[in-house]
Simulated assay, not measured.
Amino acid sequence: MDVIEQILRTYDTITVVGASADPSKAAHRIPEHMQQHGWRIVPVNPRGGAILGETAYPDLASVPEQVGLVDVFRPSLQTPDVARQAVAAGATALWLQLGIASDEARRIAQDAGLLYVEDHCLLVEQRRLGLRAPTP
Rank of each mutant, 00 (worst) to 15 (best):
M1D: 12
D2T: 11
I4D: 08
E5M: 04
I7H: 00
L8S: 00
R9D: 01
Y11K: 07
T13F: 03
I14C: 03
V16W: 12
V16T: 15
V17Q: 05
G18H: 09
S20D: 09
D22N: 15
A27K: 04
E32R: 15
M34A: 11
Q35M: 07
Q36N: 15
Q36T: 14
G38N: 14
G38Y: 15
W39A: 14
W39E: 08
I41A: 03
P43D: 12
P43R: 11
V44P: 08
V44W: 09
N45Y: 02
N45H: 06
P46D: 04
R47H: 09
R47N: 07
G48L: 03
A50F: 04
I51T: 05
G53F: 08
G53N: 05
T55G: 06
T55A: 14
P58M: 10
D59E: 10
D59F: 03
S62I: 00
V63A: 10
V63F: 11
E65H: 12
E65T: 13
G68E: 13
V70W: 09
V70T: 05
D71N: 12
L77G: 11
L77A: 15
Q78F: 15
T79A: 02
T79H: 02
T79E: 02
P80S: 04
A83I: 09
Q85C: 10
Q85S: 15
A86F: 10
A88T: 10
A89K: 13
T92G: 12
L94V: 06
W95V: 02
G99H: 09
I100S: 03
A101F: 08
D103Q: 13
A105Y: 04
A105H: 11
I108A: 05
D111P: 00
A112P: 01
Y116D: 07
V117K: 05
V117G: 03
E118Q: 15
C121S: 15
L122V: 14
L123D: 13
V124C: 10
E125G: 00
E125N: 03
G130D: 05
P134G: 10
P134C: 10
T135P: 01
T135F: 05
P136D: 14
